[in-house]
Design a protein around this nucleic acid. Structure first.
Lengths: 337, 337
DNA sequence: ATGAAAGCGCTAACAG
DNA sequence: CTGTTAGCGCTTTCAT
């Protein structure tokens, strides 16, 4: 492996000079600059990012800690972060928490161990979050998709309360009053906010929220399936289901199909995120779609900004979701007349 | 940040001793071992992976270079690699080539720069691949999903020729002779092999392969859409389409829908990978599904093995796909009678 | 079984 | 504008 010393010798200059031209921080005479660049080229020199990192106590790596890369919502987000990271000559280390706070903590420690330049994270809970450790070590952090209340952190989320409100309002306007809801834990702010939107929609319509219709668990497909079954097993089952994320929606759909029921004639359904299947299946599913890529991009930009200036003011960005009204909601107003 | 020196001082031993107990390579007296461990615990010491990496000239990081994380096929693969990597205390750096050989080369250089312990890659082409650079530097490499002919490398792929053969044979058995095919470039071995399977199916049935029915381009949805349109525009369009991957299938489906045609009554379709939408849409799509997670897992295991012993024998693993015959193929044999 | 010391490849004062 | 020098935090001989 060829080192900075080799380059220096080859070019007949000192290591510092090589370092200077490569980091283009200080002035170097044009002639020597060219000599060095030629040596670099000739020798095919690639700086050791490890050595550099050790010296400046920070690697050219960003940590990206998400719930699960297999959730297509996060996939887009990851891609966005990667795109801006690579533009800025950062690599990214990707990790999944699987919504497990202990795993999250281990991963944060990994990030510390790797001396990453910054981390983007979807925290598993709003309090007692390991982000504090990052703050202690002055590692730039930005939260994405979810918020955290232990500390002040740059954040990018979508308008959960509002999109959720609109989705449920849409159901209510179509005559639904018994609306089952499937959410992840309320310790995850996105779900707490969606639940809040759900409640607000009821209240604003002068309706009572029935807590037995609100089911919460791990926001995965399997849980969506069993919680939907619990709803369907109720003596007076809901006429519509509001799924708190795309995975739970998938579970709910399978639960509905497995009972031989159909959407929307037997039961209506709304959910989040415009996955391929939501528009390919019959009926097309009504969803609120978050600007996933944009969220990741903004988060990465906020992180780059804070890496440049650790002291800059904290920003909270809320991006708007788009409502896509499709075919999965049946109007049952006539039945009430 | 607390260092190994702090731990040594706290425990009243030397740095070497601390290093020894932490790397558990050499014998240390039980009593001192405990003292050190207690100090580590007390102080909350996290070794700098950067410093360690610099010293041993290799980080505890694996490089994972894929086409595009947004392709669900790769998503599962990535998850598998991550799972075994973390089990072995490695982190992973994730990158997308977008099928661009230049980008691939840059990414390989990044890996070299980061002194990753090994890399798993889906090469963008079979020859002139930057894997050679990795070999030069004796960095362990394993190819996944695709092969490479420039050098001997551990490889994990699926049985592309065979699964492709079966898929096309299935179409032929249902009376289809005009079968359009959508593939990525033949420089990508998986597509070359799938094309080979396609050809073999024709030959084994005593049929002629019509080259104007074989379309190749970037294996993305957009290209799938336009190539499918080219096929549909033919004076004698095919009665079935064989899509070379899930993205191109999606494009083809949209092309078909946009023309007001329907599957399978107007045109049959088969493809790869059991994505959610393939079984949620009507009709359910007949596919060959590759053991994605298993492929990633095997690849990661091969890599761990080669990291342990760089000289071990090269392995080529081919995993079996499963055929899922569903509703997207119409029998047209009767029409021929 | 343990300590002392050197050095991995780089950057950043500090001189000049 | 450029060179000298001193580490960053760790592992690894080499002694003892």
């Amino acid at each position: 492996m060829i080192t900075i010393e080799d380059v220096a010798n080859f070019a007949g200059v000192s290591q510092s000079t090589v370092s200077r031209v490569l980091n283009k921080k200080e002035y170097v005479k044009e002639a020597t600059r060219e000599k060095v660049l030629k040596a670099v080229e000739e020798l095919g020199y690639k700086p050791s990012r490890l050595a550099r990192g050790l010296r400046i106590n920070s690697s050219q790596i960003l940590g990206l800690i998400i719930s699960d890369i297999q959730n297509p919502f996060f996939t887009s987000l990851v891609r966005a972060v990667e795109d801006v990271a690579y533009q800025n000559n950062y690599a990214i280390i990707l990790c999944n928490t699987d919504e497990d706070p202990e795993k999250e903590e281990l991963l944060v420690e990994l990030m510390l161990s790797e001396r990453v330049a910054g981390v983007i994270i979807t925290p598993t809970r709003e309090y007692e979050c390991p982000i504090l450790k990052l703050h202690e070590m002055k590692v730039p952090v930005v939260c994405v998709d979810r918020r955290v209340f232990d500390c002040e952190t740059d954040t990018v989320i979508s308008d959960n309360v509002e999109s959720s409100f609109k989705l449920v309002k849409h159901l209510i306007e179509h005559g639904h009053e018994k609306i089952g809801a499937l959410f992840g834990s309320s310790k995850i702010t996105s779900f707490r906010e969606r639940l809040e939107g759900y409640r607000k929609a009821f209240i604003s319509s002068g309706l009572q929220v029935r807590n037995d219709f609100v089911k919460q668990s791990t926001p995965k497909e399997g849980e969506g399936y069993s919680l939907a079954n619990e709803l369907l097993d109720l003596p007076q089952p809901p006429t519509a289901i509001f799924a708190g994320n795309n995975l739970m929606a998938l579970g709910a759909i399978h639960a509905i199909k497995d009972r031989g029921l159909s959407i929307p004639s037997d039961i209506s359904l709304v959910s989040f995120d415009d996955q391929e299947w939501t528009q390919l299946m019959t009926p097309k599913i009504t969803v609120a779609t978050q600007p996933k890529y944009e969220m990741g991009k903004k988060a990465a930009e906020l992180l780059m900004r804070r890496i440049e200036d650790y002291q800059c003011s904290v920003k909270h960005i809320t991006l708007k979701s788009k409502l896509l009204f499709r075919e999965s909601v049946k109007s049952i107003v006539s039945e009430n007349l």
